[in-house]
Write a protein that binds this DNA or RNA. Structure first.
Lengths: 142, 142
DNA sequence: TATCATATGATATTCATTACCATCACGCGA
DNA sequence: TCGCGTGATGGTAATGAATATCATATGATA
């Protein structure tokens, strides 16, 4: 586990206990694609630890999300998770289903948007911008 | 059914058969809140028609979405549906869970965004921008 | 009005997620 | 370094949304 130390620090900062299961799940999140389902994360992490309960995976992901360490969102009715190192938006290919993060927030400091809405009484805490379309690889393949 | 004629026209334009069940579901979508779950739509529409199968509701919603007549997105793991009269973004209150549409698309013609991404090989077809925060009513209530 | 492709309805089933409870182990203090 | 206590883990069962299947009913065209 190359990043065990880094992840242990992250957990401690969030006042969460450091357990091998939590480290394995964080490692699994860092290893694979940008976002993954609970099933995929479980499969990857249980291989690393030997025996990891599926229940535990759900609970840990929920805990990590509550602590702000990972991002969670629904895609096609199933929850997807990813490391929440920094804010980003999503570019989603409708053909192959890939989800890629944008390098920066596409709305910038979204000053204008939040100001406009605040005038209507709504205070924006955060946002999610998902762009749907066809990725380069899928266009080339057709 | 006040809008039966209008909805029948919509269905015909989409080359879909006009059935009382479909009219009832469109009417249910137009009656309640901006978006609703399949369960809620079913409950509302079955009251109007007398006997409406839950299965049929799922199938009709799927059909209507495929035809572009309604919008569908996941919220908390369950599918939500709403009439897709025009494009809009969503303002979601994290406290009461209300989902309100914005009057206009917040990204404008999103010319800059799509142009920037197109340079990377990704063609944007459409987008979803969800703004999370606390609505006026919830702020007042606290 | 007759015909047929299509829509509907009911049951059974899949799949993700949650509930429950007994057991285990991390982390703090001595 | 060692014990203790709170919180974490793991397994099974239960919930609830969504899908598969197939017989029956019905809208739309000729």
């Amino acid at each position: 586990m190359p990043d065990a130390g880094r992840f242990a620090t992250l957990l401690k900062q969030a006042r969460l206990r450091v357990t091998p299961q939590r480290l394995a799940i964080l490692q699994a999140l860092a290893t694979g694609k940008h976002v993954a389902t609970c099933q995929a994360i479980w499969a990857r992490a249980r291989r690393a630890t030997g025996g990891l309960g599926q229940m535990t995976t759900y609970r840990i992901l929920e805990r990590l999300h509550a602590a702000g360490l990972i991002e969670q969102f629904d895609l096609g009715g199933v929850a997807h998770f990813g490391l929440a190192d920094r804010h980003h938006d999503h570019v989603i290919c409708q053909r192959c289903g890939s989800v890629e993060p944008t390098e920066t927030c596409l709305l910038g400091p979204h000053g204008d948007l939040t100001a406009r809405l605040r005038r209507s009484g709504f205070v924006v805490k955060h946002h999610r911008l998902d762009l749907y379309g066809v990725c380069r690889a899928c266009r080339a393949g057709t």
